[in-house]
Design a protein around this nucleic acid. Structure first.
Length: 609
DNA sequence: CTAGGGTTAG
């Protein structure tokens, strides 16, 4: 009985080559042909793709394929094992009735080689086959293609098929479903599948954990890592990767050290993937020196590992070190890629290394054979703009071989804010709002440009524009780790148990800061309110709350490490510089773009951020 | 015949 009418279930693109022969081949496949043994041994000895093609040609010449379909299957398998997926796919379609095994293998190979539509097309033909149907092996492969395409529509359909065909309880299918839903951004559906699992193995836990990481749910990553361990499942290197990623994003150094300890204990720390994640975690938690130490002891550094270290120096504003590492990498014979240059150019930009950045950019094509993409141009616009060379940045945009997008114009708008260029800023903002009106960051930038010159009418106009376009500001928050827990503070947040203590501490601190020359930059309080209220609202920015919490609770010699989701504001930047001097503490703040190491009244960014 | 994975602008 047919369970499905294929056309109503899967509106998938069918492959261009439809199986021309729609009948079973059983009658002829058993007869012997004089050439059979010759071809058979030929196939077995195929060690090179050319041999394969020669064998294929011989089969065609001898017209064997009309009588011996099994040869075609063997040949398809050989093509697959040699990575000749396109040839395998073409040949597959000449096989009258491929076995379910061959179907599965072909669907998997197409998925693994990135031919995702073709993989789903083949799933669709299997579904419409009169003799076979998808089985527990098919579903994980087909779901993998949906995951890679973020294709929730077909993913849901295939989920239904797996239920109808009684495969829903297969652990592989379940894990693939969790993965598919989370890669498509449906993390709650992934969780539902996970919760219904009769038993959870290491991979299903890991799928759920990496699913949370993929969707930016970093607290849940740590929670589930803990739950997994409590349920007696021992993490392996893959589960460590997502967990380290989450620690890095949260700036949770202690937690990250704990995971690192676990990696050492289990020996996974010597794996280059885990090592790269450890390096990145330390740098993102503010411990650049430890990151470098881990980098130095990593054997078998590959492209990603080198690139990660370059990015680490970039976050911390150490452009020259980034360039040094890049040179070492090239000398070591590792060829840089797009990501390497993205990190390298960004590092130059954050350090104001204009000429060096330009040289790197020029060398991309001429030396390293890497074609610059839009984001590399964005880095260059940022590099030039930040350094005050707004005209050169504009010239570069005009010379670019591709169309600028809103984020590239956004880099230039950021530069206009730094250099207080209202005229260029307005023109750039117009360009941006032609392309994109939903991103609150651009409105805030434009508003800040006006506010810095006390142009309150325009500030109000931008605010109304936001309301008109139904854009709301992204809520700022800051994180700080204490007592095996990451504490989160919003703006003017009074929900923390220690809120009372924090607020009175800040009030007292503000007095001391003023004695040391702190003047609140009330221009950055955007609302149309009294100056005194503006000052108070600045005082309770999330990063100030988090720092006060750290100063109250952490031991006196421990540096204060805070992670913020937005760019640090100028008033906080100034206040924290003075705080570091007044309380004699190292304060490390990671904002959306980079690190600020505050010490003795100065910031490592040199106010260039 | 099956699964999960490291770096990347603003």
């Amino acid at each position: 009985m047919r369970l499905f009418h294929p056309t109503s279930l899967l509106p998938l693109k069918t492959p261009s080559l439809i199986n021309p022969i729609k009948q079973a081949s059983s009658s002829s496949s058993t007869s012997r042909h004089p050439q059979t043994s010759i071809i058979s041994s030929l196939l077995k000895s195929c060690s090179h793709s050319n041999h394969l093609k020669q064998t294929h040609a011989k089969i065609l010449t001898l017209a064997l394929h009309h009588h011996h379909f099994s040869f075609l299957s063997s040949l398809t398998l050989s093509y697959i094992s040699h990575g000749l997926i396109h040839s395998a796919h073409l040949l597959f379609h000449t096989i009258p009735s491929p076995s379910p095994y061959l179907y599965n293998l072909m669907i998997r190979s197409l998925a693994n080689h990135g031919h995702l539509h073709q993989s789903l097309g083949l799933y669709s033909s299997l579904l419409s086959s009169t003799t076979h149907h998808p089985d527990k092996f098919t579903f994980p492969f087909a779901l993998k293609s949906c995951a890679a395409l973020s294709d929730i529509h077909n993913g849901k359909q295939i989920h239904q098929h797996s239920i109808c065909l009684g495969c829903e309880n297969d652990p592989f299918v379940r894990a693939a479903l969790v993965d598919m839903y989370s890669k498509c951004g449906y993390i709650d559906s992934a969780r539902q599948v996970f919760d219904k699992m009769p038993q959870r193995d290491l991979v299903s836990w890991t799928c759920m954990i990496s699913g949370y990481a993929h969707n930016g749910c970093n607290f849940e990553v740590l929670e589930f890592f803990h739950l997994m361990r409590s349920s007696g499942v021992r993490p392996n290197r893959v589960s460590l990767l997502s967990t380290l990623l989450a620690c890095g994003r949260l700036g949770a150094l202690c937690k990250g050290q704990c995971i690192h300890g676990h990696a050492i204990h289990t020996g996974f720390d010597t794996n280059v993937l885990v090592a790269t994640s450890i390096i990145d975690m330390y740098a993102k938690c503010g411990s650049l020196n430890v990151a470098r130490l881990m980098f130095d002891i990593t054997d078998g550094k590959d492209l990603v590992c080198w690139s990660a270290m370059i990015a680490c120096y970039g976050y911390h504003g150490l452009g020259r070190d980034a360039i040094d590492i890049f040179n070492c990498m090239v000398r070591a014979g590792t060829k840089p890629n797009h990501a390497t240059f993205t990190s390298l150019l960004s590092a130059c930009s954050h350090s104001g290394l204009v000429n060096e950045g330009r040289k790197c950019f020029d060398s991309m094509v001429s030396v390293h054979d890497v074609e610059p993409k839009l984001n590399h141009y964005a880095c260059m616009v940022d590099l030039l703009g930040r350094a005050g060379r707004l005209h050169e940045a504009l010239e570069l945009i005009e010379r670019m071989p591709m169309k600028p997008d809103s984020s590239l114009w956004g880099s230039l708008l950021g530069a206009c804010r730094i250099h207080g260029d209202i005229d260029t800023g307005e023109k750039v903002a117009d360009k941006i709002f032609e392309l994109e009106t939903t991103h609150s960051g651009y409105y805030v930038l434009l508003s800040n440009i006006y506010a810095a010159k006390s142009r309150w009418k325009e500030v109000e106009r931008v605010r109304k524009l936001m309301v008109g376009n139904k854009v709301s500001k992204v809520q700022g928050f800051s994180l700080i780790e204490f007592g095996n827990q990451v504490h989160k503070f919003g703006v003017d947040d009074r929900s923390h148990p220690q809120a009372k203590e924090i607020y009175s501490y800040l009030k007292e601190l503000a007095g001391k800061l003023k004695q040391h020359g702190y003047v609140p930059l009330i221009d950055f309080a955007l609302h149309d309110i009294e100056d005194e209220t503006k000052e108070a609202s600045l005082l309770y920015h999330s990063e100030k709350l988090a720092i006060a919490f750290g100063l109250i609770n952490l031991s006196p010699e421990a540096p204060i490490r805070v992670t913020k989701n937005l760019r640090i504001c100028a008033d906080c930047h100034n206040a924290i510089k003075i705080t570091s001097k007044v309380v004699s503490r190292k304060i490390v703040v990671r904002d959306m773009n980079r690190f600020h190491h505050f010490e003795n009244g100065y910031c490592s960014c040199g106010d260039y951020w």
